[in-house]
């Protein structure tokens, strides 16, 4: 094991190998697309815009998954967050305050999820599906299924301006969040507690940690980030609707799982989540660019996730076998 070359060790690293797959996917779509339009600035900018909303949700989702929770209501929290933000702006509230209040809404939604999961002992999975329906319903009630336009010029800049005229601000924000949370998970006590509580809540509790407190913080965090992401989306689209951000929860979970974060909690990291997100986005966008029929896109997206999970399964099995052979 020790005399392995750096290259081989890097290839063993899941994140690195996944990054290579992503590069391959990008190359594939580049050649498949008409005159390489996949890699044209316009399209790339579109990808980055898409990524930034999903990615912001994915940061919160990844941390939550690691600590053993899950928030299937993230989409509706993002959607309702954006709507609340737009409604507050229309009511004449300054944009920083409106954004702040939308984030507060997300935090409260997260706290409700945590309450249901930790105090009422409902499985997070089920509880958040229920809440998701509640928020989606409220979104429709508030908007009456119409667009709420965002006219605040300053607020529009948040989502639509770009650095160097190319990198969208939301993408920069998402990157900053990823780095921040990645550091948090790796280098702080709270990060370590998230892993340990997710890996085995009973053992964590008996070792002096508080799994409930940890997941509560991360539920709130996930809700707040989702609402923030929804607001950013509203800012970019210059409007909010009850059908916005519909798939971000599933996409965030898919990106995390692709990146090696276990649904069972306790493993994976933000770097993997980021690569998983890029792969997913490149893939989804690529399917669009090569003009695959949208029904078939759905099929391909599902297949991608399933294939990734199967590869993971076989890899794990091979690893266990190798381990067994090595021991006497």
């Amino acid at each position: 094991m020790n005399n392995q070359s750096t290259v081989r060790r890097l290839l063993r690293n899941k994140t690195v190998s996944l990054a290579l797959v992503t590069v391959a996917v990008v190359a594939l779509f580049f050649f498949l697309s008409k005159d390489g339009s996949f890699l044209k600035t316009r399209n790339l900018r579109g990808i980055l815009n898409m990524v930034s909303v999903t990615g912001t949700v994915a940061v919160g989702m990844a941390c939550l998954l690691i600590s053993g929770g899950v928030d299937l209501a993230a989409s509706s929290e993002a959607c309702l967050g954006g709507i609340l933000c737009a409604m507050l702006l229309r009511a004449g509230i300054s944009w920083p305050l409106a954004l702040f209040l939308a984030i507060i809404y997300g935090a409260v939604a997260g706290a409700i999820n945590a309450f249901l999961a930790n105090v009422m002992n409902i499985m997070g999975f089920i509880a958040t599906i229920g809440m998701s329906s509640v928020y989606t319903g409220l979104a429709k009630v508030f908007t009456d299924a119409k667009f709420i336009s965002v006219n605040d010029k300053e607020f529009q800049k948040l989502g639509s301006s770009a650095i160097f005229g190319f990198v969208p601000v939301p993408f920069v924000i998402m990157l900053a969040l990823m780095i921040l949370y990645g550091f948090m998970l790796r280098y702080t006590r709270f990060g370590r507690r998230s892993y340990m509580c997710g890996g085995n809540p009973q053992a964590a509790r008996l070792s002096g940690m508080s799994p409930n407190r940890t997941t509560t913080v991360l539920y709130i965090n996930c809700g707040a980030l989702s609402a923030f992401a929804g607001s950013v989306l509203a800012s970019r689209m210059h409007s909010a609707t009850a059908t916005a951000a519909q798939s971000v929860a599933i996409d965030a979970i898919t990106a995390s799982v692709l990146g090696g974060i276990s649904f069972m909690g306790g493993s994976g990291g933000i770097a993997g989540c980021f690569v998983g997100l890029m792969l997913l986005s490149a893939f989804n966008n690529g399917l669009n660019v090569v003009q695959l029929q949208s029904y078939w896109q759905l099929v391909a997206q599902g297949a991608l996730l399933i294939i990734a999970l199967c590869v993971e399964f076989f890899g794990e099995r091979a690893r266990l076998k190798a381990l067994k052979r090595r021991e006497p």
Partner: peptide
Amino acid sequence: KEQGLVLLRSLKD
């Protein structure tokens, strides 16, 4: 295994 250790984390952790 159920209550003592976080099996998938390292010895150090």
